[in-house]
Amino acid sequence: MPTVIIPTPLRKFTENAARLDVDAASVEELVDHLSSSFPLLRKHLLDETGKIRTFLNIFVGDEDIRDLDQEKTRLSVQAIVSIVPAIAGGK
C-alpha cells in the first residue's frame, strides 16, 4: 500500500501521524482518502474548487506530480508520497 509522509505543520490534523499507509491507486484517491479520514486536513490540501493548493507540492518518490500526471498520477504499492508545503520561517 502506498505510504504518505505528512509534514510537521499538518500533523496536528492527522492525530500526529507522520506516516500513513493509504489504500489508493492514484494521487487523487490518496488525497480523497486522507480528506475523508481527517476532515480538518481537507482545507489545507485542497482549495475551494477542490484543486490541490499551489503552496503545497506533492512528490511521488522524488518527482513532482506536476512533472508526472498531476492528480491522476498512478501509485505503485511501494510508492512513497510526500506532501511538502511552503514554509517561510528563518528568524
Binding site: R53, T54, F55, N57, P85, A86, I87, A88, G89, K91
Partner: peptide
Amino acid sequence: DLYPSPPPPGLVPSCAEGGV
C-alpha cells in the same frame, strides 16, 4: 517554479506563532 503562489495569510503559521 517550486511554489507558484504563497499560502493565504493565516493558513500557515510563522515561527513567532508556531515556534521552532
